[in-house]
Amino acid sequence: MAEEQKAKAKAEQIKGKAKEAAGRAVGNERLEAEGRVEQSKGDARQAKEKTKDVFRH
């Protein structure tokens, strides 16, 4: 389960970076902001999983 969540986190981060770059390329501030939000969600999920790993070992 933990590996699945880590993969989701990484996918959210990558998707967010792509959205942000696309938004910046076309000058769409909303798309750029959505990308940053997705990256933040991925960062939070990844931090949560790392914390769980620390307490697991």
Rank of each mutant, 00 (worst) to 15 (best):
K19A: 13
K19Y: 11
E20C: 11
E20R: 08
E20K: 08
E20H: 12
A21Y: 00
A21P: 02
A22D: 15
A22M: 11
A22W: 07
A22Y: 10
A22R: 12
G23W: 07
R24F: 09
A25H: 04
V26N: 05
G27A: 09
N28M: 06
E29N: 04
E29H: 07
E29A: 12
E29L: 11
R30T: 13
L31K: 12
L31A: 15
L31Q: 14
A33F: 05
A33T: 01
E34L: 15
E34V: 07
E34T: 04
G35H: 00
G35V: 03
G35Q: 03
R36Y: 02
V37E: 13
V37M: 10
E38R: 06
E38L: 13
E38Y: 08
Q39P: 00
Q39S: 11
S40G: 15
K41H: 09
G42R: 02
G42Y: 01
G42C: 05
D43Y: 02
D43R: 01
D43E: 11
D43K: 06
A44I: 08
A44Q: 14
A44D: 14
R45E: 10
R45N: 06
R45P: 04
R45Q: 06
Q46I: 03
Q46L: 14
Q46M: 11
Q46H: 05
A47W: 01
A47S: 09
K48I: 04
K48N: 06
K50Q: 11
K52N: 04
D53V: 00
V54I: 14
F55H: 10
F55Y: 10
